[in-house]
Amino acid sequence: MEPMHVKKGEGDQLHIPDFLEMTVLVSSQATDGTLCIMEDVVPPGIGPPRHIHHKQDEVFFVLEGSFKFEVAGQTLSASAGDIAVAPRGVVHAFKNVGESKGVLRYIFSPAGDAEAMFRAICESAKVVGLSHEMLAKAAEPFDQEIVGPPL
């Protein structure tokens, strides 16, 4: 892995209208698979379905807004400056419970295929639209499992 500097506003954009506005800040390729870092602008009332990353830990840094997290059956309330951790193999989800957009930064460790999964979800959404079934099907090849509805 080489030293790097990512400036504000840089990164590769991934987008699904009214659901996902993500920027890949540090790719898994840039870190030799050690980790990847992404930032997500989350509209009010939005969050993913309950899911499991079988081979990665996920760390959430709340940069803006108010969020509800569910991690391994525990409900957590988080706001700017807070961190939530979802160890690999546990069910987790989040939801923006504020009245305006929220911003989360994620670290996946090891990077695994998280980045590739989000890219596959974006491509599938363009073709078939966003649905629970589409998310489950797109996530499965990347050792991610959709196990329940959103919060």
Rank of each mutant, 00 (worst) to 15 (best):
K101I: 07
R105S: 08
V97L: 06
V97Q: 05
G102Q: 03
L104I: 02
K95R: 09
S109I: 10
L130M: 15
A125V: 08
I107E: 02
K101P: 07
F108H: 14
R105H: 01
N96S: 05
G98D: 03
V103A: 08
I107Y: 12
A114Y: 13
E99T: 12
S124I: 05
V127D: 14
A111C: 07
G98F: 03
G129N: 03
C122R: 08
A125H: 03
G129I: 01
A116M: 13
R119A: 09
R119G: 01
L130K: 11
V128E: 15
V103N: 08
V103P: 00
G129P: 13
R105N: 03
S109Y: 15
F108P: 03
G112N: 12
E99G: 14
A116E: 14
K95H: 10
E99F: 02
I107D: 05
G98A: 00
V97N: 01
L130Q: 12
V97C: 05
P110L: 00
V103S: 04
C122S: 09
S109T: 12
C122L: 03
K95L: 07
A120W: 09
P110M: 00
E115F: 07
K101C: 10
A114Q: 09
M117E: 08
E115I: 06
F118T: 06
M117D: 12
A116Q: 12
K101N: 15
E115S: 07
A120C: 02
G129S: 10
S124V: 04
A114P: 01
I107H: 06
A125M: 06
A111Q: 02
V103C: 02
S100Y: 09
G112D: 08
G102H: 04
G102I: 01
E115M: 03
R105V: 07
S109C: 10
K126I: 12
I121E: 15
E99H: 11
Y106Q: 03
F108N: 13
M117H: 09
M117Y: 15
A111M: 04
